[in-house]
Every structure is written in structure tokens, then in C-alpha cells.
């Protein structure tokens, strides 16, 4: 199942970044597919991006809301919130585990063999602050003399933007390099910190700072597809605690907002079939995990 998940990550990563003409054109994709929302964090200024980034769009729409309203355009971001709300209602943070290119990049970095460190649970609240303050409140409230707000998260934080768009665009368009200043330096440092941190801890950006992960986490109890704990079968052996890349203690918190439905606890840890995948309460059959009563894979 882990192989299937990896392939899904690769395929969705390619589908959301499938415009490979940029080395010849030196510009980003500008076709009609960009009206489609990327399910995960995927910068739409990445030269290969064929979809729009929900976080970037929300900030742009809210930042331009005053101007839009003056022109009789009611651009509150409903279509974007609607899209990621539908995705959240269906999958919740399963999107993080299966369909986010930046999550995938962090997973790959975490495979580098080093000593690994846990992330204190308290840091997981940071992402809700970024969602509320940097994605919604600041673009809406702090405006310039023309009434326009800035995309605060994109501008000051987003490491996916720096990695997927900033560095490639600076390579493709040398004239942009003259504009490099403190803003870029700040974002470059933040990106470097998260990428190095990802080597030592599992998915640090997803867990501490991703506003999209925070949004999808709001659906942890109500999403259609999620894992189910059969309490009658659970022996409290805690095997599931040790395999979780998100620091979830599944049998203590089966609807945990951090769970990205990677299925590691179900497939690699639980020997008592206490964990199953369900759709709206209906249990799904899952492939054999290859566990024997004496040991696990």
C-alpha cells in the first residue's frame, strides 16, 4: 500500500505540474487548465504548474476584495473555499498524505539516514495561526493606499513558492535576479530551515506551518473517507504510535487532525485488525498487509 501511495503522489505531482515547455519558452504555463485547483500546496508560479494554488488564490482574492467590491464583483473566494471544502469533506488530510507535492518532497528528504527527532505537539497549532492571520486576516485588513492587500503567506513565508517557483524562475529569467533583496533572503532562509528540518523530523512544514493542512485538518471528524478504530479489538499495544509520520497516537485519538491517512498504522503496525479504512461509516476491504501473527513487515 505504501508503494501505491508513493505512485499516487508521483502521478498527482506530475498532473499538477505537467507543463514542461518552460525550458524553451522561459515562461510559466498560461493555459485554461489553470482554472483547476491543485488539491495540495503547489505554487502556481512554478513554471511547470498547470493548476492554481488554493492558498495563493484566496490571498489574492481577499487582498483585492475592496477593489472588486467597488467594481460590483463579489470575489470573496467562495469558489476556492468551496473547492477545498469539498476536497476536505471527502478526504480531509488524506490530501496531505497522497496528493501534496510539497509533502512528498519532505517525505523524500526524511529518507536521508540521520538521527530523527520528534516535533513537540504544541508546534502543530502554528499552522492554524498562519491560516487565520497570514492567509485571511492580514491580506484582508492591511491594505495600501490603493486598498490592495498583500498575499502575506506567499510573500513572507511559503517555502513551496520559493522552491517550486522562486528558484526556477530566477534561473529562467536572469532579469529577475536584479530584484533580489531582503524579501527573497527571508523566504530563502525559511525554505532552507524547513528543508533541513525535514531531514531530521517528519514533515515539519505540514505539521507546524501549512495553512492548507490546517484547513483540511478542520474536517478530521467529518470527512467521508477516514480510518476507524475498533475499540473491541484494540489491545493498547501502542504499535501504531511508533509508525506514525505525524506523531499521532492513533488508538488514543482516531480522528486526530494530524492524521494524513497514510495507512501506515493499519498496514504496518496493527496486528489485531483494529484499524480499518471506511467510507462514511462503511468499512472497506483492505489488501493483505503481509503480517504474520508472529511479526510484522
Amino acid at each position: 500500500m505504501e508503494t501505491v501511495r508513493k505512485w499516487v503522489q508521483v502521478i498527482i505531482g506530475f498532473l499538477t505540474n505537467s507543463s514542461w515547455s518552460f525550458p524553451f519558452t522561459n515562461v510559466i504555463y498560461q493555459g485554461p487548465l489553470k482554472v483547476i485547483c491543485a488539491p495540495g500546496l503547489n505554487c502556481y508560479s512554478c513554471p511547470a504548474a498547470t493548476t492554481y494554488c488554493p492558498l495563493g488564490s484566496i490571498q489574492q482574492l481577499l487582498g483585492g476584495l475592496r477593489f472588486a467590491l467597488e467594481n460590483g464583483q463579489y470575489y470573496f473566494g467562495f469558489s476556492v473555499f468551496g473547492t477545498i471544502g469539498i476536497l476536505g469533506g471527502l478526504f480531509g488530510r488524506m490530501i496531505c498524505g497522497w496528493a501534496c507535492p510539497f509533502g512528498f518532497i519532505q517525505e523524500l528528504l526524511h529518507k536521508i539516514p540521520t538521527k530523527k527527532f520528534a516535533i513537540p505537539r504544541i508546534l502543530s497549532y502554528g499552522k492554524y495561526m498562519f491560516l487565520l492571520v497570514f492567509v485571511i486576516v492580514l491580506p484582508l485588513v492591511l491594505v495600501d493606499e490603493f486598498g490592495s492587500g498583500s498575499p502575506w503567506f506567499c510573500k513572507f513565508v511559503c517555502p513551496a513558492g520559493t522552491l517550486e517557483a522562486g528558484l526556477p524562475m530566477l534561473l529562467l529569467q536572469p532579469n529577475l535576479r536584479n530584484s533580489i533583496g531582503l524579501l527573497f533572503l527571508n523566504k530563502f532562509v525559511i525554505m532552507t530551515i524547513f528543508l533541513i528540518w525535514a531531514v531530521f523530523s517528519s514533515r515539519p512544514f505540514c505539521r507546524t506551518a501549512c495553512p492548507l493542512g490546517a484547513f483540511y485538518a478542520l474536517f478530521s471528524k467529518v470527512r467521508l473517507i477516514k480510518l476507524h478504530l475498533d475499540e473491541a479489538k484494540c489491545t493498547n499495544c501502542k504499535a501504531c504510535h511508533h509508525v506514525c509520520p505525524m506523531g499521532v497516537k492513533f488508538n488514543e485519538s482516531p480522528d486526530d487532525p494530524e492524521c494524513i491517512s497514510c495507512l501506515a498504522c493499519m498496514n504496518k503496525a496493527c496486528q489485531f485488525d483494529a484499524i480499518s479504512l471506511e467510507i462514511g461509516g462503511i468499512p472497506l476491504a483492505v489488501p493483505d498487509k503481509g503480517l504474520s501473527p508472529a511479526g510484522k513487515s
Binding site: K34, G56, P151, T162, G166, N186, K187
Partner: peptide, 26 residues
């Protein structure tokens, strides 16, 4: 509701331009 207000056209307009903030220079 968002589609009815014509929002996707605005989203597309923004998405096909290079976002200087995303890159870190604007």
C-alpha cells in the same frame, strides 16, 4: 455561488501571471 459570481475567471487571470510575492521579489 463563487462560480455564479464569475470568480473562476478572476482566479485564472491571477494564476497565469507570475506571482512576484510567491517568488520572493515583490
Amino acid at each position: 455561488i463563487g462560480v455564479a459570481t464569475g470568480e473562476p475567471a478572476r482566479v485564472l487571470e491571477q494564476a497565469i501571471q507570475v506571482c512576484l510575492s510567491c517568488i520572493g521579489i515583490g
